[in-house]
Amino acid sequence: MSANLERLIRGRQWLDAGFAVLGAAMVVLCLGTLGILIADLVRDAAPHLRPEFLNSFPSRRPEDAGIKSALVGTLLVCLVTAVVALPLGVAAGVYLEEYARKNRLTAAIEVNIANLAGVPSIVWGLMALGLLVYKLHMGRSILTAGLTLSFLVLPVIIVATRESVRAIPQVLREGSYALGATRWQTVSRVVIPSSMGGILTGSILAMSRAVGETAPLITIGALSYIAFLPPAPITSAPPFVSFEWLESAFTVLPIQLFNWVSRPDPRFIENAAATGVVLVGMTLSMNAVAIVLRYRLRKKYTT
């Protein structure tokens, strides 16, 4: 009997060890592939990763070409996206979780928001082309691009906000009400601050997805060659701020990268690799910020 039991136990132990090995192998495989890809990219890119590369405009000569306009374009488009999508997304998420009555309508809205998060980005691009460019005549501008990417990330931000608001224990809200706080005071001083970690993480991850988006921006007509910057947002004459840059034509890093990859001259491929390194660097550093924020805020609100 006991021999039988021992055999059974040994079998389970083997199974357990086998799974651990399999899991570790998978991790190594995934990280290894990523590591090799990045190493290869960096090796191709190394000779081009100089300050001049970031600070010069594209050119037909690969050694003079840089990504100034694409980098600035990407940053400005992301700025518009963040300014539009973050307040709207967080407000919508908090409303749905804290204020909205739970009925069929809100249930339907919730399901649909989750579905919207899975809509392919090219579909958003087509919608933006039809609505923003053709109907509303907003032009093929930074504003249009920013709004298009906001459509794309809004559902993701709403879902992330709702998840983290829902994770706040009910006792915190009840404690707040017990002290005589109104609903708004509870939401603004208790619920939102304590769910900030999750909200920010979700939002930053959504933004880093937006950074790499190409399809919807090509659809609305991002350009391939631009050798100037949009007008500066800060001017010397009153009122000192200008929103003219919103209407400017633009290009973004993924489009510049794609353009170079399809060139006959192999030296452009190295430029494309360098652009890839910058893009990966941007995405990774955004993710790093998300991790740090989550860690800090969690510490602050859980102890």
Partner: peptide
């Protein structure tokens, strides 16, 4: 805007033109 085949030519012309004519902007799409 237009053909990707013609793009490298127009890009080269746009680059030189903007060097020679500061203040004029040229955008080229594909």
């Amino acid at each position: 805007d237009g053909s990707s085949t013609v793009f490298p030519i127009t890009e080269a012309v746009a680059e030189e033109f903007q060097k020679a004519n500061a203040g004029v902007r040229v955008t080229v799409g594909v």
